[in-house]
Amino acid sequence: MENNVINTPIDPKQIPGWGVDADPKNDPTYPMRYPRMNVGQDPDSKHRPASLQHDDTEKLRSIERPNVSAVYGTTVPPSGLSGMIRRVAFRYSENRYRHWLPLVFADRVNVVEGILDDFAHGKVPNIYAEKGYPVEWKHNRTSLIIKLATVAAVAAGTVVLLSSGGSENKKEKRRPQRPY
C-alpha cells in the first residue's frame, strides 16, 4: 500500500471524455449489444463472396469447415518434413491434441529446416543479430553476459560430460574380455 502515495485521487469528471460513451443499456454488452442472429433467422446463412480465390498454393484446411475460405493466405506452403507433419495434423479437428501438438512439433522441425536451408543457400545465419543481442548489449549488458555465460557453461559441461563418458566407454572396450 506504500505506493498509494503516488496514486493521487482524481475526480473522474475532470478526465477528458469522461462518460461520453456511457450507456446504461450496455450491460450485457457486445457481442450481445446487437441482437444476435441465429442461423435459422439468417435467410442466407451460408452466403459467400461471389469471387473465390484460385491459385495452386497447397492450402491445409480445417476439417471443421467444408471448403476453402473465399480468400486465403498463400505464404510459406507446407514443405519438407515439417510439411509432412502438418499434413497429418490437419487430418484431425481443432478439438484434438493430435491436431495442435504435431503442429507445435512441426514448427520446431521447421526451425532446423530453416537453418539447413540457409546453409544450402550459402548463408550462415547471424544468430547473434537475429536474436537482437546488439540492442540487449546496449541496454542490458549484465543480463546478457550472465545469459551467454550460462549457455556457454552448460554447453561446456555437456561436452566435458559426453567426452569423459566416451573415453570411459573406450576404456571399457579396450579392457580384455575375461574368458569364461
Binding site: R36, M37, D42, P49, E64, S69, A70, E94
Partner: peptide, 24 residues
C-alpha cells in the same frame, strides 16, 4: 469479407471466409 453470417452481425474479428486453417 463483410458478407458472411458473422460479419453481417458486426463480428468483423470472426469472419468465416478468410481463414481456411482454423474455425476458432
Amino acid at each position: 469479407c463483410g458478407e458472411c453470417h458473422f460479419c453481417r452481425q458486426g463480428m468483423y474479428g470472426n469472419c468465416h471466409e478468410s481463414n481456411t486453417e482454423a474455425t476458432a
